[in-house]
Simulated scan of single mutants.
Amino acid sequence: MSTSTSTSPTCACKGIRFCASCINSERVKNLTSENVNQNFTDYQTYVFNPADQKCYSSPNLSTNSSVTDIQKHSEWFQQQSPDALTNIESFRINGLLILDDFLSEEEEEKLVKDIELTPWALSQSGRRKQDYGPKVNFKHKKIKCERFIGVPEYADQLLKRMSEKSNGVLSSYQPFELCNLEYEPSRLSAIELHQDDMWIWGNRLISLNLLSDSVMTYENSELKKIVFVFMQRRFLLSMFDEARYQWRHGIFSHHIIGRRIALTMREPAKAFQVGGELYEKYGKELIERGNVRIPSVLN
Rank of each mutant, 00 (worst) to 15 (best):
V274Q: 15
I287Y: 02
Q273D: 03
Y279L: 09
L263C: 13
L263E: 00
K281P: 09
N291T: 12
E288F: 07
R293T: 06
V292E: 10
A262Q: 07
A269H: 09
F272K: 03
E277H: 15
P268G: 10
E285P: 01
P268I: 03
N291C: 14
V292R: 13
N291K: 10
E277V: 13
R289M: 06
L286W: 03
A262Y: 04
I261R: 06
Q273M: 14
E267A: 04
L278H: 08
A269N: 13
V274I: 13
V292G: 01
Y282L: 09
R266C: 01
Q273H: 03
P268E: 13
E280F: 04
M265D: 01
G276Q: 06
K281C: 06
L278K: 05
A271V: 15
L286K: 01
V292H: 13
L263Q: 09
A271K: 15
V292M: 13
I261N: 04
R266W: 00
A262G: 15
Y279G: 10
F272N: 03
E285V: 11
K270M: 12
K270S: 15
P268W: 02
I287L: 10
E288T: 01
K281N: 12
M265K: 06
F272L: 14
K284A: 11
E277M: 11
L286Q: 01
K281W: 00
K270L: 15
F272M: 09
L263G: 02
V292P: 05
I261G: 02
G275W: 01
Y282M: 05
I261Y: 10
L286G: 02
A269K: 00
R289S: 02
G290I: 00
G290S: 04
R260Y: 03
P268Y: 11
Q273L: 09
E280H: 04
R259Q: 15
Y282S: 01
M265Q: 04
G276I: 08
G290C: 04
K281G: 09
L278R: 05
Q273P: 01
T264V: 07
M265L: 04
A271P: 07
R293Y: 04
K281Y: 08
M265T: 02
G283H: 01
V292D: 06
G276W: 09
R293D: 05
I287P: 04
G290Q: 02
G276H: 10
A271M: 12
Q273T: 03
G276Y: 10
I261D: 06
R289N: 08
Y282C: 04
E280Q: 14
A271D: 15
L286I: 01
G290M: 01
R289K: 08
L286F: 02
G283E: 02
E280C: 04
G275Y: 00
K284H: 03
L263P: 10
E280N: 14
G283F: 05
E288I: 09
A269D: 13
I261C: 05
N291Q: 12
